Simulated assay, not measured.
Amino acid sequence: MASFAERLRKQAGRLSRAQRQLAEFILQNEPRAAFMTAARLGAAVGVSESTVVRFAIALGYSGYPELQRDLQEELRARLSAADRLVLAEERGERAETILDTVLRTDMENIRAALASLPRDRFGEAVTALQGARTIYVVGHRSAAALAHYLGYYLQLMLRNARTLTQAGTVLEELMAVGPEDVVVGITFPRYARATADAFRLAARRGARTILITDSVVSPLVEDARIVLPARSESPSFADSLVAPLSLINALITAVALAQPDRVRAALRELEDIWDRQGTYLKEERRSDRIAAPGDAEGEGSP
């Protein structure tokens, strides 16, 4: 998918004077322009709203909303945390109203994931995780929290998962990776170089690669066999990890339900260890939530 700048270069000779003025304004004021409505952008340049819409169509977009989304996605991949906070202030975000804005954005991110996630690719990811010799879960910066969460539960269930979140040693820890292994990479704008390097190494060594990221145009996509997109858009400088976490929860649950006997046995053994160690204040056998086929009551019931 061509970026705004690429589209602009291809169509520059065909643009009208007013459209060239719009292009120049956007390039010079990109952080602010990316969040302007068509009417506001037109007013800032001194052209009509319809001219802004025609400008977007001239660049090959379906309309101004698609152009705006493109600008925002490109911007999010480059902005520093401080820049993103400035943008939030420029959009008029306030501490007293931000709760509603953040929660609405999180809900929209989940709705978008539900609508866009390819079910067949999700199924392929579950199958790959089940059949892996070793699962490596790679995530850095804020995505490290998601990597730890996914790696923790895969290790509990399958006992063959390793979580790699240390940038300085991740390539060394992947030296033994091969075609029988699965590498799950988790990254969001601004994409971590350590995750990209690890993912590239895994792909080169023939490992099955699963990418959890914000978009199918993520720079790591070319090294991924399976891409599972989940938006991380946020009105704040901090990425929203709600939709990616929901996706990861679905992966964990699907893996467990695909082989309940194996997972239930592993969890019950762990429960006995935890009971002896007094790990929890109150005993809770979460393994019993995975019912054996045909169980109505007793040992296999939730």
Rank of each mutant, 00 (worst) to 15 (best):
R276A: 15
F122G: 00
R76C: 00
E299Y: 08
K10G: 10
T187L: 07
L251P: 02
E297W: 05
S142E: 13
D100F: 09
E90A: 13
R225G: 12
V86H: 10
R76E: 01
F4Y: 15
V217S: 14
F55D: 02
A125K: 04
L67V: 07
D120W: 01
Y152M: 12
S62Y: 06
A203F: 01
E49K: 15
E90K: 12
I210V: 15
E74P: 04
P189C: 06
H140F: 15
P179M: 07
A113F: 06
A258G: 11
Q19V: 08
E172W: 08
T51C: 10
E108R: 14
L270S: 05
Q166D: 15
A34D: 07
R225C: 02
Q11F: 10
P31W: 03
Q277G: 10
R205C: 04
E180R: 15
A112Q: 12
V242C: 10
P118R: 14
V255C: 01
A224R: 05
A265D: 00
A112S: 14
R190L: 09
E74M: 09
A161N: 01
R111V: 08
V86P: 03
E30Y: 09
E96Q: 13
R104L: 03
E173R: 12
R286E: 03
A145W: 06
P244N: 05
E172F: 11
S218R: 04
H148S: 07
L164M: 09
P260G: 00
G206A: 02
R14M: 12
F35V: 10
E24W: 05
R121L: 14
A23Q: 07
T253E: 12
D261T: 04
L164E: 14
G139C: 06
S116P: 00
E180N: 15
G60T: 02
L158T: 10
A58I: 03
G294L: 03
E269D: 14
R14G: 13
G63F: 08
A132G: 03
R264L: 10
F4L: 11
R268P: 02
S232A: 15
R69T: 11
R54C: 01
D288A: 12
D223V: 04
P302T: 07
L174C: 01
P235L: 09
L75G: 10
G294E: 03
Y280H: 12
E6T: 14
A82P: 00
A167D: 11
